[in-house]
Design a protein around this nucleic acid. Structure first.
Lengths: 200, 200
DNA sequence: CAACATATGTTTTCACTGTAAACATAGAGC
DNA sequence: GCTCTATGTTTACAGTGAAAACATATGTTG
């Protein structure tokens, strides 16, 4: 195993490098129109090499999306480790972490919800998404049990919360929630509206 | 002007035909990966002909998105012509029309909010989107003036409502709000949640 | 009404893409 | 040490968006 030597016929760690290169390009450009060949070029391998690790481009995109859901979950979970004075505060904190993830890595976030990655073809992706959703369910469930939130079917409540967060994030990425259109600090207003609908 | 004769060198109405063909393909496939050449083939013209009407593919997509916003606005406006017992009912009706448009023409709806159509490059597109947003502003404004809704900055309230609708629509299209994940009739729960946050 | 400018078509050409197939080589297990 | 397999490379192909050169209607103008 020659490892990372510069001119090894067998790269040794190509899959990781391909993923990281693709992640870079996803950040640099504003979408996932980057070509597999360009990824290969930047990784310093032949244009066919990536196909030894991913059957096609959509498989690579699915991998990026899966990693994205995992990372998003990690960031939200990290936020949730803090102590909160109330379920209200916990919900706000998690929501802001969600929105921050989306607006900080817009192309990735978009990719995660794009029709170009088919969840039914990539079970890992579907699972990663569900794990993130479970965090939201947990927050609302705790809120209901504490009496702070209305007792509603928690999954329906979660659908509402997720819809709001997803919509807000997407519109923000889109630049549709700029000041002159929507006023200042829409994030707080928006989250407050939702919570007032939730709370007792 | 030979008009629609089958074998005219000058088609006479190509732009419209190209748009309609592209609209068809947008409905048939699940995205806008269709090629300009395929559009041309189906329209029965050479593969370069579309370039006489659209500088590039993104311009055609922008046109489709613009028409989409206009059509969505039309459908919502049509719904609003009815008489409503309350601002509440009016909001619900408009929301359902919005969501229906999105879930009925998912690819088009996705395109309208895709990064592949750059609003800053296509002023018409931006304007069409703003017109649709204005409908929402009107509903909330009337609701506030009637005393049914809280007096909040109406644009911020609209941001919240739009976020919820957009998120719900996108997640529905994505198949993320299916029964086992989220319960029955999430649409009603979701809209109710939001409205309870809005109302006095 | 003839001539021409322009709008709208077609053909040809190009660089590039995703992907498949054939081939090469390094490392792992026998 | 030999072979198998995983992981590379090279070569090949059909198809793409787009530009350029060319063709033909159409409508304007003398």
């Amino acid at each position: 195993m020659q490892g990372k030597s510069d001119r090894a016929y067998h790269h040794g760690d190509l899959k990781r490098v391909i993923i990281e290169t693709a992640q870079d390009m996803l950040r640099e450009e504003k979408g996932w129109q980057f070509t597999l060949r360009e990824v290969a070029r930047r990784a310093g391998v032949s244009h066919a090499a990536p196909y030894k690790h991913f059957p096609d481009k959509s498989a690579l995109l699915a991998e990026l999306a899966t990693l994205g859901f995992n990372e998003m979950g990690r960031q939200i979970a990290l936020e949730l480790e803090r102590q909160f004075r109330s379920p209200h505060a916990e919900f706000i904190a998690a929501s802001k972490a969600y929105i921050r993830f989306g607006t900080t890595t817009p192309s990735l976030y978009r990719l995660m919800f794009s029709a170009d990655v088919d969840k039914s073809s990539f079970p890992n992706l579907d699972e990663a998404g569900n794990n993130a959703f479970a965090l939201l369910l947990g927050i609302l469930d705790r809120g209901q049990k504490s009496g702070a939130l209305k007792k509603q079917p928690v999954r329906a409540q979660a659908a509402a919360a997720w819809s709001l967060l997803h919509g807000f994030t997407m519109l923000s990425i889109d630049g549709q929630l700029l000041h002159d259109k929507v006023g200042t600090k829409p994030i707080d207003v928006v989250l407050t509206c939702m919570l007032e609908g939730f709370e007792n």
